[in-house]
């Protein structure tokens, strides 16, 4: 019985420290030091939230850069992935469908020439980024859909180039391009 009381006191005390003081303190510090990041790196336009830098949006129209395929249509409330075995039939069907979608706009090209990240669904379903290759790959299609001049298209290429984020500290992770930010820059063209 004595042990139970000790356990109870210890549990209550640790709950207060780890469950209340700790997260609230961290929240407080976060809100002071990194208010934007702590609240979701939201992008505002006219005081209106139009998206988060970190949460990929669904793009299926040819005139936008597309992000990674998503099993949840980029709706993050209950994030998720395909969870299909990559050697299975179901995956192959989805994979082929993704190839078909690309081919619909890019012509009958070899599967191997399509940047991989446009054929494989992301883990979170809201991956905000694609590889630079995937971005360049889409430039022509967007130019065509938006009826850009060659000049404009070259400008677009420059925009993509300047949007490439290097690996963190030049070491960690991959080169990548944020799709939403890139699409937002389309407006200026």
């Amino acid at each position: 019985m004595k042990t139970t009381i000790t356990a109870l006191k210890a549990f209550i005390l640790l709950t207060i420290i780890c469950g209340v003081i700790y997260p609230l303190t961290i929240t407080g510090i976060a809100q002071i030091t990194f208010p934007s990041k702590a609240n979701g790196s939201m992008i505002y336009q006219n005081n209106q939230i139009i998206g988060s830098e970190l949460i990929g949006q669904q793009f299926s129209k040819p005139e936008f850069f597309w992000g990674r395929p998503s099993s949840i249509n980029n709706n993050p409330n209950s994030s998720g992935a395909s969870n299909l075995g990559p050697t299975g039939k179901a995956f192959k069907a989805q994979f082929n469908a993704r190839v078909d979608t690309i081919r619909k706009y890019h012509g009958k090209i070899e599967v191997n020439t399509i940047p991989k990240d446009l054929l494989f669904a992301s883990g979170s379903g809201v991956d905000p980024e694609i590889s630079p290759e995937a971005a360049f790959f889409q430039v022509e299609r967007i130019a065509k859909a938006r009826k850009y001049t060659t000049d404009q298209m070259n400008k677009l290429k420059d925009i993509v180039k300047s949007s490439i984020e290097a690996p963190d500290f030049q070491v960690f992770g991959e080169e990548r391009v944020n799709v939403l930010l890139l699409n937002l820059r389309l407006k200026g063209l």
């Binding site: 988060s52 299926s60 129209k61």
Partner: peptide, 25 residues
């Protein structure tokens, strides 16, 4: 947090994407 992990007690954010779909974050 400095890298962008969220830390707040807010409710979820509802917004319209560039293509016009609804997104709840």
């Amino acid at each position: 947090i400095s890298q962008g992990v969220v830390q707040n007690l807010n409710g979820y954010t509802e917004l319209n994407t560039l293509e016009g779909a609804k997104q709840i974050i």
